[in-house]
Design a protein around this nucleic acid. Sequence first.
DNA 1: TTGAAAGCGCTAACAC
DNA 2: GTGTTAGCGCTTTCAA
Lengths: 381, 381
Amino acid sequence: MGTEPALLPRRTPRVRGLALRDHLWLTSPAVDTHRHQAERRSRMVTSRDVARVAGVSQSTVSYVMSGRRSISAETRRRVEAAIEQLTYQPNAGARALASQRTQVIGLVVPFAPGADPAGLLPFIETIASCARAEDHDVLLVTADEGSSGLTRLAGRRLCDAIVMMDIGAEDARIPVAATLDVPVILIGVPDDSSGLQCVDVDFALAGRLAVAELAAAGHDRVVLIGYTAEVVERDINFVRRFQGGAADAAAELGLGHEVVAPVASGRAGAEDAVRRALELGGDRPGLVVPNSHVVPHVAQALLDRGLVLGRDVSLVGLCTDAAALACTPAVTNVSLEPRDVSRRAMQTLFQLLDRTAEPPSELVELVTPRLTRRETTLPAP
Amino acid sequence: MGTEPALLPRRTPRVRGLALRDHLWLTSPAVDTHRHQAERRSRMVTSRDVARVAGVSQSTVSYVMSGRRSISAETRRRVEAAIEQLTYQPNAGARALASQRTQVIGLVVPFAPGADPAGLLPFIETIASCARAEDHDVLLVTADEGSSGLTRLAGRRLCDAIVMMDIGAEDARIPVAATLDVPVILIGVPDDSSGLQCVDVDFALAGRLAVAELAAAGHDRVVLIGYTAEVVERDINFVRRFQGGAADAAAELGLGHEVVAPVASGRAGAEDAVRRALELGGDRPGLVVPNSHVVPHVAQALLDRGLVLGRDVSLVGLCTDAAALACTPAVTNVSLEPRDVSRRAMQTLFQLLDRTAEPPSELVELVTPRLTRRETTLPAP
DNA sequence: TTGAAAGCGCTAACAC
DNA sequence: GTGTTAGCGCTTTCAA
């Protein structure tokens, strides 16, 4: 370390107000508490400052941080000490401008109408944490912006990649997304993905698992209590896929198979659905309820009728484990595992972003759901 | 318009791959669908391109977009036409670097432990939409990053301001937040806000309103069914404020006042709480339940005991209108109105960001809650 | 009312 | 292994 390295004269005179920066003493960042919010921001600590303190060039600082060049131990030590001392943090805008990478992931969340609100958070949470694990941040865009949100994210170079949730079967945003020059990952599977990566639960398999469990519980008739009109209208593909899988399994296993749909939301809707299901389902029906919100209401409605779950009637929910456990009795469920889906999506995303890695081989990745037997199904003797 | 303006020779030869850009024909942005995700991003359309097409200087384009300089009608028309034609969008990083403003709001959300998950979304949603209304975006940071999330947001110049939710009474992030050189808005009120702007519901008033309603319903004894141990442990200030307001009002109105707390979560917890409340509350108690999750369970527990709500016992919830309406019967409630709080916070934020406006006069802004009489209280004759 | 050009803070090519 | 420097695309002076 030793003496302050000779300062290089600026190539050109500065015009801005910060022209004096090279002559200022380097002070530690603002620590005066209780100052007023409106006070102007302090001067940034730049990588030039770090370079000067460490007695190296600015590019060396950059290379120490990025690891894209081999650095001697001594130099690295000095640079890291200077970074520490100055609490240097790189300016994100400058970095993005120079490197063409923002370290930001755009996340399009379905806030708008009809979407399941509570179920959203595990997705967002997991996506955010996966992003942070790779030193990326998450920029939130709400779905009500539609396609313009996408073009803004890409056009303004606000992010390096986009994750889009709640994909409709014929989602108007897909063709737009396909023209963007950033990778887009869909959580959900549209009819035509236009070459975009998709990640979702294998809903067809989920349907099969649910029906198989009911067969194992000795039922010869299954009733699928369908989605609410809202969900069906939004035409999310998984409804069809789940019902298809359930129907296929029922056919293969030789079970009777009925669908009660659409179902009105809320307690009353569930009660009505249960009534209809029991009419259709014979004396000992197996029920499948593919909707987190509806599961507890259906369970309650069955209890209210004096039925013993797991004996008089079996129930398999398609819902998170948490929702299944929150019911009394705990409901046998096929888990949606939003965290797994999100994690998988982010894996794929970073694979796409990593130019050294080869792109994912599958365009549509389906996460295998898991059935957990709890108190509402019993294997037949 | 007319002829292409003479291009100024670049001051220096270009070294990078894009050196040829000035000689390229301007093509419309990529429209070839179905190309593979991994394909490299196309060249950006820059404000220089717009300037060339419009036959003006780059600075004129900038001034047309920012409106910070008067522009002749004809020039404006040409520039806007060029922007349209090229579907130009400004590069966010470059803009941030040059202007020292990112047009991004950092949002610290309490994903980590114990926080109410579903109640979060209205906040996030409203904050995002207010931000968009001012052409800002929202960068999500999860609370589990703690203070380092804050220093990163500010240090890397990732955002112009920070909104922080779920503030504990003695929140360790507050002193850190106070040293940042971006404005920070707290949603919630800590014991010591260190000069930071706070926005929250007036929980003391909420408590008073609830008790006053029960007094009007002819009760002479109110029982407050307290928060779960979880919430109390997190030491969020509003618990104290709400209970204080309720206690004050009860004293002023000469009502008996009891608290049942903490309450175990879930159905069983609510049943137990109701049992205790009825023991304490005499023959015709007025109940206050300050927790969205607990309200429906308490209502159910009362119904299960054959009590008629609004006659044998009154119930006032502290919860969103949606939660109150979802109960049967609909619960009289003091609304938390997360949307109002968020909107107010964002108003304050943009006021802080607008250097021409004067800063807000109040450091702590309390949003007035609203009581809506529904089916679980009846005014005494 | 407009244009020229400096420079925001960083990365990465090029040189040694 | 390290330094020099051009330039990323924008805003904003300064000059006219």
